[in-house]
Structure formats: C-alpha cells, structure tokens
C-alpha cells in the first residue's frame, strides 16, 4: 500500500468531522432530547430513564468513546474550519450564506454551552460520586435550579436552539458533502425535511424546558441505599 499523504489525511479528517456530527453526536442529541422530553409525561418516567442510562455497564467507556472523543474531535475540527472561513454574508445576502455563518456561530455557542452543561451536571456527578441511582435526584435538582431563574432558562434556550439548528443544518450539509442529495430539487426537498426535523427536535427541547420551569418536582432516589 502506498504511503498516505498529508492531503489525504486532511480530506479524511474533514470527512470524519462531517460524519461524527451525525454519528454519534447527532444521534446522541436526538436521543438526549427525546428521553429528556419524558419529563413532560411525568417525572417518574424521566427518573427511570436516567436510572437506566446511569446504570449501563461500561458507562464511562461508552461515554468517552462515543460521546466525549467524537465531540472533542468534532469541536476541534469545527474551530479549525471556522478559523479558515471569511464570512461575507453582509455583502452577499443569500439565505444559504446566512446558514453558513449561523452554522459556525451555533457550533461555537454549543461548544460553550456544553462546557457549562457538562460542568454543572456531569462534572459534579463524577466529583461527588453521585453514581447509580443517586444520579437522578441530583440531576433533577440541578435542572430545577437552572430553570428557576430566567438566566438559566435563557442559557438553555440558546443552547438547545443552537444545537438543534446546528444539527439539522449540518445534516443537510452532510448530505451535500457525501453526495446523498445532488440536484437542486433534491436539495430543496431535503432542506424542507431537515427544517421539519430540526423543528421537531426544538419542540421536544422547549417542551422539556417549559415543564421544568412550570412544574419543578423534587425526587428521591429510586432505590434507597442501593449498592
């Protein structure tokens, strides 16, 4: 096999950037918003879902391999791409050009948001050892506090909107980049599908925020003193 050139690595990394946005990050985002929206059904189903996830075997490995590494990689590549861009949407005011700017902007916002989000949820959970069935009351408590203030609500609104836009628009870009949609009609139809999809994700997220804000409920661990 011939040696691999720097250019080929570059190409491969960019392709992977595009792919990791969908798998696993996009998929994770979808499930995350979907499962969280169980909160709108009731606090118990929500708590059980947290229990289920936090009690998965090899959880830390799954998180590191399938969430944190891809996320860091995607973010790192994203900042590299943003650095190269010379946005000109004020001069060339076309919808797609605005999307191009927003995609980079929301990427950066989501990154900052995630630092905050993980810092307030995952980091203390690990630090204080809120493992297993104790995680749910802790996390729900954090969220109750976040959504008690307008600051918290706005931070989460911006974070969720940025994430869903970044994902839906990124899906469209993924389809272009991988050559899944080609013709102008296909491009237009795909963008309609992705707008609907992004809209649905946003609704899920917003509904959850609304539920937390309107009905904060404290919970006890599902199994007291469980090992």
């Amino acid at each position: 096999m011939s040696s691999i050139s720097k250019g080929q690595v570059h190409f491969f990394l960019l392709k992977m950037h595009s792919l990791t946005g969908l798998i696993p990050i996009g998929l994770f985002l979808t499930f995350h918003l979907l499962i969280n929206s169980l909160r709108t059904v009731g606090v118990l189903p929500y708590q059980w879902s947290i229990d289920l996830i936090n009690n998965l075997p090899f959880l830390i490995w799954i998180e590191v391999l399938f969430i944190y590494i891809p996320l860091l990689f995607h973010s790192f590549m994203g900042f590299y791409i943003t650095k190269v861009a010379k946005t000109n949407a004020l001069r060339y005011r076309y919808p797609r050009n605005w999307m191009y700017v927003l995609q980079r902007l929301t990427g950066a916002i989501v990154f900052v948001f995630l630092v905050y989000h993980l810092g307030t949820t995952v980091a203390p959970k690990l630090w204080f050892g809120h493992h297993l069935f104790e995680a749910a009351p802790f996390l729900i408590d954090v969220m109750n506090q976040e959504f008690a203030t307008w600051t918290g609500r706005i931070i989460y609104l911006i974070g969720i909107l940025s994430a869903t836009f970044h994902f839906a628009n990124g899906l469209w870009g993924f389809c272009m980049s991988w050559g899944i949609i080609i013709g102008p009609r296909a491009q237009r139809n795909a963008s309609i599908v992705f707008i609907l999809f992004g809209g649905a994700l946003t609704v899920l997220g917003l509904a959850t925020v609304l539920e937390f804000s309107l009905h904060p409920v404290d919970v006890e661990p599902s199994f007291k003193g469980a090992p």
Binding site: K6, G7, F11, A85, Y94, R96, N97, Y100, S177
Partner: peptide
Amino acid sequence: IMGEGGIADCGNAQVCVEV
C-alpha cells in the same frame, strides 16, 4: 481534489451558484 484545498473544504455557503 481529495486533499488540502479540495472538495471536503467546501463549507456549503452556496454563494458561488448565486453569483
């Protein structure tokens, strides 16, 4: 075009087709 400066660098702003 599968290298640096190639097709993967396209950011899909789609201004090209407009102008």
